[in-house]
């Protein structure tokens, strides 16, 4: 089956079985490996991408459920040159350790900031349910606050 997608601003046609999760389409058919496989059932958030601007866990979205020409943004499309305010804040706060969960963290945080440009700590608690095994949560929180213009705590 053929599917037409708009990924990071580019139109792409892919031929794949309709039950294939968006995660594997992005990673294997489109070669965008920044989006990570962590649990396969939507629990960890490592596979978070934006579908029409909303954060989704792409491992649980079969490609046939994605309407034709949907806008999909992956970590590779967050900015061209690490210039998204969150990427700048992530480096300033030295957030990643192993880094594997971070593309998903960044995409979840970007969706949060689009909805709430100045989130408080509770908003961050609610939105940031992605799992990190290295324990970068305190820095994730600080980086989101920094990117949203808070330099300290709310």
């Amino acid at each position: 089956m053929s599917y037409l997608l708009n990924v990071n601003g580019e139109n792409r046609v892919i031929d794949v079985n309709g039950d294939t999760p968006l995660l594997w389409v992005v990673r294997e058919n489109l070669g965008l490996t920044g989006t990570k496989f962590g649990c396969g059932v939507g629990l960890c958030g490592a596979c978070t991408v934006h579908l029409e601007g909303t954060a989704v866990r792409s491992c649980t979205v079969p490609i046939r459920a994605v309407s034709s020409n949907s806008r999909i943004t992956t970590i590779e499309g967050l900015s061209k040159d690490r210039s998204h305010p969150l990427q700048i804040a992530w480096i300033a706060e030295q957030v990643p350790q192993c880094g594997y969960c971070q593309p998903g963290m960044l995409m979840a945080a970007a969706a949060l900031l689009r909805e709430k440009p100045e989130p408080n700590e509770r908003d961050i608690d609610t939105a940031m349910t992605n799992l990190c095994r290295c324990g970068t949560y305190p820095r994730v929180k600080r980086a989101i606050l920094r990117a949203s213009g808070h330099n300290g705590r709310t």
Partner: peptide, 27 residues
């Protein structure tokens, strides 16, 4: 000092084991 491995971990460009690409690669 800012860690040298961090920038590539903020834009999806770090290549982990699951990301390896080779010609004729099966999974």
């Amino acid at each position: 000092m800012a860690r040298i491995d961090i920038p590539a971990k903020t834009d999806g460009s770090a290549i982990y084991g699951v990301d390896v690409k080779l010609p004729e690669l099966l999974v």
